[in-house]
């Protein structure tokens, strides 16, 4: 027999379904392979992600206990297991489920504001050069050098502020703006929706409709980005985002710093872009409530 190795699966997201009648059987089409994540199709319009521990849990993530996934060349899936490169079996059955709901005990707005201030400090210091953090700290515009980069920064600034001013149509102009697989504009929108969700949990105001509207306006043909935004619109969060949000209520700068650092490690600029969107929208909501939307 050919020898197979079992890879430990740390967690499977609560939106990942195995064994249902719509489950995919057979080899899956791989969308993209990165060091820390492999995205693959289970249906034409649905994506699952195999991720490393450093990325952590998420609604559609399967966290494998390895430090790099760049070796993945093929993915086979049936109702009980995933097999990589025909030789590594991911042990789904004994894994834990990741719960992507957000549950905030505290309703203390002042505590949250204080947490946001600390969050902003860290973001100013630690965000990568070409991230959207320049929206929080204008001096960071210095990092944008070529004419194209400058135009990009200008548009990100313009459209994100339009959305923040209640002009929801600009969502579709922000979406897709920027470099990479999840452009800066998409991540900012993701951050916006997370802020709306947190506000809902804190105040009881319903932001679900606005989030759905933002998602509908932002839909495109980038399946990875759309998946992220879809879950955010439903109020389902990725582990690192969730950790950050919860840390803001703990009144402990060291914990916040640790959580922000982890989030900033996502993708190349994604973590910082999500953070920027979250911070801007949260500040807006703390000042003016939800009525302007």
């Amino acid at each position: 027999m050919s020898l197979s190795l079992v890879l430990k699966v740390n967690s499977v997201g609560d939106q990942v379904r195995f064994g249902g009648k719509h489950s995919h059987f057979g080899y899956c089409k791989i969308h993209s392979v990165f060091n820390n994540a492999v995205n693959f199709y289970i249906k034409r319009d649905a994506i699952l992600s195999l991720v490393t521990r450093s990325v952590g849990g998420g609604p559609n993530n399967i966290v494998i206990n390895v430090d790099s996934l760049s070796f993945v060349k093929s993915i086979y899936m049936d109702k009980s297991k995933i097999v990589l490169n025909d030789s590594f079996i991911c042990d789904i059955e004994s894994s834990l489920q990741y719960n992507s709901d957000l549950f905030i005990v505290s309703k203390d707005l002042e505590l949250f504001k204080k947490g946001l201030d600390k969050f902003e400090d860290i973001l100013r210091k630690k965000a990568p050069a070409l991230s959207a953090a320049f929206l929080v700290d204008k001096r960071r515009l210095n990092f944008f050098i070529t004419p194209f980069e400058k135009n990009l920064a200008y548009s990100l600034d313009l459209f994100s502020n339009e959305v923040l001013d209640g002009k929801l149509e600009s969502v579709s102009r922000l979406k897709g703006l920027g470099f990479g697989l999840t452009p800066q504009g998409d991540d900012i929108l993701d951050g916006f929706m997370i802020a709306l969700l947190v506000y809902e949990k804190l105040t009881g105001a319903n932001t679900g409709d606005i989030r759905k509207k933002i998602f509908n306006l932002s839909r495109g043909s980038n399946i990875i980005s759309d998946t992220f935004l879809y879950y955010a619109s439903l109020g389902l969060l990725y582990e690192r985002v969730k950790t950050l949000v919860l840390s803001l209520f703990l009144n402990d700068p060291a914990i916040i710093e640790n959580a922000v650092s982890k989030l900033l490690n996502i993708g190349e600029t994604s973590g910082a872009d999500i953070s920027t969107g979250f911070l801007l929208m949260s500040k807006k909501l703390m000042q003016g409530g939800i009525e302007w939307l």
Binding site: T146, P147, F148, N151, S155, R173, K175, G176, F179
Partner: peptide, 22 residues
């Protein structure tokens, strides 16, 4: 070389390409 861009082909990126004359 005056300017260069390597981006995904979203509508929005196209509009920046347009502003940048690219």
């Amino acid at each position: 070389v005056k300017d260069a861009a390597v981006v995904m082909g979203t509508e929005q990126n196209k509009s920046i390409l347009e502003t940048s004359g690219l």
